[in-house]
Design a binder for these strands. Structure first.
Ligand SMILES: [Zn+2]
Ligand SMILES: [Zn+2]
Ligand SMILES: [Zn+2]
Ligand SMILES: [Zn+2]
Lengths: 175, 175
DNA sequence: GCCCTGCCTGTTACAGTGTAACGCTCGGCG
DNA sequence: CGCCGAGCGTTACACTGTAACAGGCAGGGC
């Protein structure tokens, strides 16, 4: 979906934590490699099901529901149940390889190599359904300050913005 | 639940958008009054079901699921279906009287009188389940800046932080 | 009064999301 | 070999949310 945008302009774009929507084979290979390294280092099992689940999520250009993933993983005669997908997704989300979009009950591949402390901001387009993951140290700082003020000890953060992405704005203005 | 905290110390607390968890009858009456004013001004219908739904959500000290609300609204011989509750909740959330907690599929009363432009930050305690709604102009600014940088036009925002509230931290450390 | 219309609600049916529980397999280990 | 733990298949089930249709009820025009 959405032709163009092949990537490599990434380093010179001047944006901060912004990763441009980078799905497709390239990002998939990156993510799989990252998963294998992680499993190696921590003594975890990056099983075939987990790898295939990660691949399906990474290939798709938009958030996928668990049942959609299950369907894509199924082949005639060998059906993958959603519950298995949920377990694989548990693993993948726990280790930051995919993210859950709470407002959509769906999952997207991680577009950054951020650690557990760094939380992401998800920009969800209402028109094309794409999700862009960005990191902003400034937002983290404001959040931390507010949380400290409230005496609240954060464990996980969800920041999801729904709206219209740049591409769709141009599309609807210009025609 | 959770004794103490009767409120009125609100104006002198020095916090910014922080409302302390204010449930109970007082906040309920405030919310109902606000809803009646709003319906009056905009020519909307603040029906019995909508009022009762708002009251149930406001009385509870924690996020309530739609089916929980339906159960509380039901009396022997007169059952309220969840679908009716959803419609009432649609009305209430559209007009900012209650908020949906996406990460919990649950609803809480609005603790502020904020307009549609001002978005809230929800602090969700994993121990006691309470939800505190705070407003931070600083976070809004950082978000706006990041969104502008990404060329993204926001329509609605979800910021939910899971962790441990101040009360529960004290409880687990000291007691 | 009567009809028409719009909004709200009741009811049924159903799709989508997520988890509990049980049992099997496989690989490592004594 | 038996034991054990992790992953996975399978079933069953609970929870969340919506579509579609029918009835009630108020307001407005006739
Ligand atoms: Zn990420
Ligand atoms: Zn778009
Ligand atoms: Zn609010
Ligand atoms: Zn708490």
């Amino acid at each position: 979906m959405e032709a163009g945008k092949r990537m490599d302009e990434h380093e010179t774009c001047g944006h901060h934590g912004h990763a441009h929507d980078a799905h497709g084979p390239a990002r998939t290979a990156d993510l799989v490699a990252r998963a294998e390294r992680l499993a190696q280092d921590l003594g975890l099992q990056f099983t075939a099901l987990r790898r295939r689940t990660l691949e399906v999520v990474a290939e798709e250009g938009r958030p996928l529901g668990a049942y959609d993933i299950a369907e894509r993983l199924s082949v005639p005669g060998k059906r993958v149940a959603a519950v298995s997908v949920y377990r694989a997704l548990d693993f993948l989300t726990e280790h930051g390889l995919v993210h859950r979009i709470a407002s959509r009950n769906a999952f997207v591949p991680c577009e950054h190599g951020h650690g557990a402390g760094e939380s992401a901001v998800f920009l969800i387009c209402r028109s094309c359904g794409s999700v862009d993951e960005t990191i902003s140290a400034e937002i983290e700082r404001s959040l931390d300050r507010t949380l400290a003020e409230a005496g609240f000890k954060p464990a996980s953060r969800i920041v999801e913005i729904e709206g219209e992405c740049g591409a769709c704005q141009g599309r609807s203005e210009a025609g």
